[in-house]
């Protein structure tokens, strides 16, 4: 990453959060996506850390701002979820307990997050299939039931990481475009310029069914 984040004019700034139990690989998923890096000596995340990447979706340049956080159950800082348009919910396929806890995380997300937040369930560490405790099918079924997107990834082997983030960001983009189209027809324009957080204030129910990608 150069200093280009300061220069390039982006069409959109999307904020997304990554959550899940301790040690499921949240930080490495983010660093794989934003810097193509994987650290074997990665440390527990403290507080809030950030990753960002500029990507092109359709014909728009999007700055994805990814918020990383500590996995241990902690007090919710409302600022963590504030303005987040997407959430990546991560578990580790080699530890059943991290999958069981997904329910808790989802609950928290639905309580504190925006109701139109795009949520993708990510089953990480697919490279460790010899010690697998959660079958792919289980993740898929759960995601379908909850209306989430689903993907198995390996941050270590760089499998599906980019795809998972891109899917989330593309859906956010489509919702936003549709939303701003509606707004154009109905009056006041949303301010979607660089440097501003975008809040989807109203329901985007029309697009909600369309965006469910676990079909």
């Amino acid at each position: 990453m150069g200093d280009d984040i300061f220069d390039e004019e982006c069409d959109y700034l999307f904020k997304a959060v990554v959550i899940g139990d301790s040690g499921v690989g949240k930080s490495n998923l983010i660093s794989r996506f934003t810097k193509d890096e994987f650290r074997i000596d990665s440390k527990p995340t403290i507080g809030v850390e950030f990753g960002y990447k500029n990507i092109k979706v359709r014909d728009k340049l999007i700055k994805a701002q990814i918020w990383d956080t500590a996995g241990q159950e902690r007090a919710i800082t409302s600022s963590y979820y504030r303005g987040a348009l997407g959430a990546m919910l991560v578990y580790d396929i080699t530890r059943l307990s991290t999958f069981v806890n997904i329910k808790k995380w989802l609950h928290e997300l639905r309580e504190f997050g925006n109701e139109d937040m795009v949520i993708i369930l990510v089953a990480n560490k697919s490279d460790l299939s010899h010690s697998r405790e959660v079958e792919k099918e289980e993740g898929k079924v759960f995601a379908e039931k909850e209306g989430l997107c689903f993907m198995e990834t390996s941050a270590l082997q760089n499998l599906n990481v980019e795809e998972a983030f891109l899917q989330m960001i593309t859906i956010i983009h489509d919702i936003i475009s549709q939303k701003s189209l509606e707004d154009k027809m109905n009056g006041p324009k949303l301010n979607l310029t660089n440097g501003k957080e975008i809040h989807i204030a109203d329901e985007v129910t029309a697009t909600k069914q369309v965006n469910c990608c676990s079909r």
Partner: peptide, 19 residues
């Protein structure tokens, strides 16, 4: 910048600049 809560300094204070 919505940084009025100074969350970006969270880690420095929590682990006394270890990172």
């Amino acid at each position: 910048l919505d940084g009025g809560e100074y969350l970006f300094a969270f880690r420095m204070l929590m682990v006394l600049f270890r990172r």
